[in-house]
Amino acid sequence: MDLPSASASTLARRWQWLIIAVIAGWLIWLLAPVLTPFVLAALLGWLGDPWVDRLERRGRSRTTAVVLVFTLMVLLLSLALIILVPMIERQIMELVESLPTYRDWFVQTAIPWVEQRTGLELVSWLDPQRIMEWIRGHWQQAGGVAATFFGHLSRSGFAVMAWVANIVLLPILTFYFLRDWDKLVERIAALVPRDHIGTVGRLARESNDVLGAFLRGQFLVMLALGAIYAAGLSIVGLKLGLLIGIIAGLISFVPYLGTAIGIVLGVVAALVQSGGDWTLVALVMAVFVVGQMLEGYVLTPRIVGDRIGLHPVAVIFAIMAGGQLFGFLGMLLALPVAAVANVMLRYAHEQYTRSPLYAGDRPAILLDSYIDNGAIGETPPQDRDGK
């Protein structure tokens, strides 16, 4: 085959893959509400598959291993709900009862403090008469928004029923994904073009490692940090310590973001609760400092290790972009897609550094020899001798 025809064939294949990707994205966008329980069940099946494989290697049948892992997952979830839901409910009731105290603190303490240091007039915006005038001026617009909102709610009965059906389907789908996960992987691998099976297999393994390091490792770190923050804040006497600790732990998948939000919420709660006593504030800060030290020196090295995770900026962008494009389904798909994209970018960088576009016309072996000898830019030995 001559060069022009080979280039045309390669270009045609690339256009075919691009068209397939566009059609797949369009179908995902159309079927997002239907695909949501399937994607969530697939993620749960992927998370539980290593445990099933481990039990199989110990002599259990696939069905028995799946039943044991599935039962363990259901028990852990049920236990978490039984323990946490009443505690969180009490914390929320505590917060609701304390709202007048928080309002008075913001109006009488926080806002005047900010006004003194910035020169802004913020209290006037909180005047009830001014708020009522603003509401009257925007009443028609607010009424139109409210009518649209409640009209949407009246038409969304079917959507609520669909969500209930999805919740019922989720455990069923998870069980089947756990049972047939290895078969699904084999069938997908069988569809890969044979001349690319090596590269695709390598990229798939790397993507699995990246996603596994983030989801499995960071999930355990999130749970541990949530427990540490909640227990520590409760021990030092913060009334909303459990709620703030859980929030900080759940957001800690982005490094430092969970700690920053937890410190802000904890400091405000401590100031309101103590009436300005900085002792409780110092204890709250100490809890988060200890939590960060445990995460950096104990939790992350032992649980996540040196496996490659996702950059926090990539995580935030992926979740926001996925939610904007595909809703809740996009948020579920965001991290797997980001993991694959991260691996693909590394592969593209690797191919670029091996290409003539990066190396130029100089022989790669000669360049490597100079680098190894620490003599970049020096004259080759044969040129020094005049040979």
Rank of each mutant, 00 (worst) to 15 (best):
E97K: 13
D53Q: 12
F288P: 02
E133T: 13
M285I: 14
V22E: 01
T71S: 15
D277M: 12
F70A: 06
V337I: 15
V123Y: 01
V304W: 01
I167H: 03
L271W: 05
V200F: 06
S98I: 02
R14T: 06
V254H: 02
D127Y: 09
A80Q: 06
V254K: 05
L11A: 11
L332R: 02
L299T: 05
L333P: 04
H196Y: 08
F214D: 02
I263Y: 11
L95Y: 05
G245N: 00
L76M: 12
L211S: 03
R62N: 14
L77D: 02
V192S: 00
R187W: 07
S61L: 07
L76F: 14
T64P: 00
V145Q: 14
L126G: 14
L68R: 05
A348E: 08
L47H: 02
G212S: 01
E97P: 00
A6R: 12
R362A: 15
L243P: 08
M285V: 09
D104Q: 11
I247A: 03
T379V: 15
G245M: 02
L184Y: 11
F70Y: 15
L280A: 06
A269G: 01
I308S: 10
I111H: 12
I371P: 02
G212A: 07
A224S: 13
S274E: 08
G249I: 00
D383K: 10
P381C: 01
V67L: 09
K239R: 13
G48C: 05
A142T: 10
P112T: 07
R58N: 12
L55Q: 06
I82G: 01
L170A: 06
I197A: 03
F326S: 00
G198E: 08
T10N: 08
A260P: 03
V74I: 15
L333A: 10
L242I: 04
I251H: 00
Q116D: 13
S355H: 08
G291T: 05
M293E: 09
W46A: 00
